[in-house]
Structures are given as structure tokens and as C-alpha cells.
Design a protein around this nucleic acid. Structure first.
Lengths: 137, 137
DNA sequence: TTAATCCTTATAGTTAACTCTAAGGCAAGA
DNA sequence: TCTTGCCTTAGAGTTAACTATAAGGATTAA
């Protein structure tokens, strides 16, 4: 079975070897086996697990909370409900982030339009004048 | 014209007074006027500007870069093009974030389904067995 | 064999964005 | 008047997540 060295694994995941060692130190990688001389040997399955870790991180989950999940995984079937609940919470969190991002996009679009108009007119004053004639709402 | 004290402004923006003073120190709030005794007096327009600052922050823009935008605003019409370009870049950035979030959501959904199936079966093993019969792609 | 290039552990430093403390000024209500 | 509760400044402390250094061991390529 193919294994990856720490730097190969890092490359695969767009991380650094430093980061992977840091994750290991924080207890995120208890499943990674070592060679006789103590070198970490990342299996394909470990890379997949790390992709899940990165996914959780991208939802804004701090490393200490991700560790709870990793611990639950080691516990086996008795923690299935907790793990399911965690993913449901993450789902809600991501949905909220999507909503936020939509609002952000609306503001950015509004500003893009603001500057397009200003550039056409050659001055930002165009917006002040418009507002004086047609007060906002 | 109504003005807000720093703590009122903070409340309005869901920030703390500490944070607003920090922003000021970093040069993000040169437009905020002071009373005779030196107290910051936030105008409605200033609150709106802070909402834009928060919007930029939510796109992942660091405070030092936001300062460039604030400086451009003070420069007037000569920086219109730069400011427009900046918002176009932010737009692209937010679009990329949306794509990322979509991928994250797909993984989360996949995991939710994984745990639903496992909970029904009472064990995670159901997934290993399935994989043995029908290898993945 | 010798240098390069990996790897290890332990520990220190960095960065961003706050977050708070200390010391003190001002103004309104009891 | 005096206490409460704002406000100010300067500067120190915190936190998360890296990021790097030091000291040294093992493996590979010329």
C-alpha cells in the first residue's frame, strides 16, 4: 500500500510539513502510523481524513473542537450520534455563512455600481447630487 | 444632526468600543470628528462607512489594506479608478469564497448522509461492507 | 565518504485582530 | 459635593494558528 512522507502529504493537501506536525501535536492525527525509525507514514485514508479536517476548518471550526471529533472517531460506534449532530451543526453554520456572503456580495455590487457611475461622471459628487434630488427612501 | 458616542456606535455595529478605538488607531476612522473635550462623535455617515469597513473585513481583507481604501477616499476623485478596481477584486474574491463554501457544503452533506446511514444500521461498518462489494469508481 | 535532503523533537517567534488595564478627565444625578 | 459612569490615551496581554529554529539522526545520490 502506497504511503506518503510528511512533505508529500503536505504537498497533496496544500499545507506545509510544519502544519501537519502541528496538527499531530494538537492530537488531530492519532491514526497516522510510523515507520520503525519513527517517520510518519500517511496512508491514502489518512489523506482523506485530513481533507475532512480541512473541510471542518473551512467552516470556521477551531482545531480544539476538531479534536473532539477525532476523539469520537476513535471511540467507535458509540459516538455516531454525536458525530452526526456535529455535522448537522456545521451544515447550519455553513448555511449561515452563505447568507452572510450573499449580503456582502450585495454591498460589493452596490459599490461597484457606485464607482461605475462616478467614473462615468468623472466625479463622486454625482451621488450627492442625486441624493439631494431624490432623498433615500 | 444626531451623533453617536463610541459605545453607542459600537452597539449599532455589533462591535466593542475597544475595537472602534483600535480601528481609529490603525487609521481607519480619520473622518470621525471630535467634540471640544476630544470625544469622538460618530455621524450617521460614519456608521455607514464602518458598515463598508465591516463588509470589506468579511471578505477577508486585512485592516492594513482597508486603510489604503480609506486613504484613497480622502484623496478624492483622483482615486476613483483604484477604488473601483479594489471593489472588482473583492467581488472576485467573494465569488471564489462562495465556490469554496459550496464544495465545503457538499462534503458536509456527504458526511451527514454517511452518519444517517450508519445510525440506521447501528454501525459505521455498513460503509466498509458497501465499499467492498462496490469499489469506489 | 560526503553532501544534500529528508526526517525527528522541543521550543521559541510571528501575525492579526483584538482585548484589556491603568491612570486620569469630565459631566450628570442624589 | 460626591459618586457613577461615561470618555480619553498609552501600552501591555491574549489567542489561534501557524512558522521557524536548533540540534541532531537516517537515507539517498555523486
Amino acid at each position: 500500500m502506497k504511503t506518503y512522507s510528511i512533505s508529500q502529504a503536505a504537498k497533496e493537501l496544500n499545507l506545509t510539513a510544519y502544519t501537519l506536525r502541528y496538527y499531530d501535536k494538537e492530537g488531530l492525527l492519532p491514526f497516522v502510523d510510523r515507520s520503525e525509525s519513527g517517520t510518519r507514514q500517511f496512508k491514502e485514508k489518512d489523506i482523506d481524513a485530513l481533507r475532512i479536517i480541512e473541510c471542518l476548518k473551512s467552516t470556521g471550526m477551531p482545531i480544539k473542537e476538531i479534536k473532539h471529533f477525532i476523539d469520537w472517531c476513535a471511540e467507535g460506534d458509540s459516538s455516531l450520534q454525536q458525530r452526526y449532530n456535529m455535522f448537522l451543526e456545521r451544515k447550519a453554520c455553513v448555511e449561515a455563512q452563505m447568507e452572510e456572503l450573499k449580503k456582502t456580495m450585495e454591498m460589493i455590487d452596490h459599490k461597484c455600481h457606485y464607482y461605475e457611475t462616478a467614473l462615468e461622471a468623472g466625479t463622486e459628487k454625482i451621488h450627492q447630487e442625486v441624493k439631494m434630488e431624490f432623498p433615500e427612501y
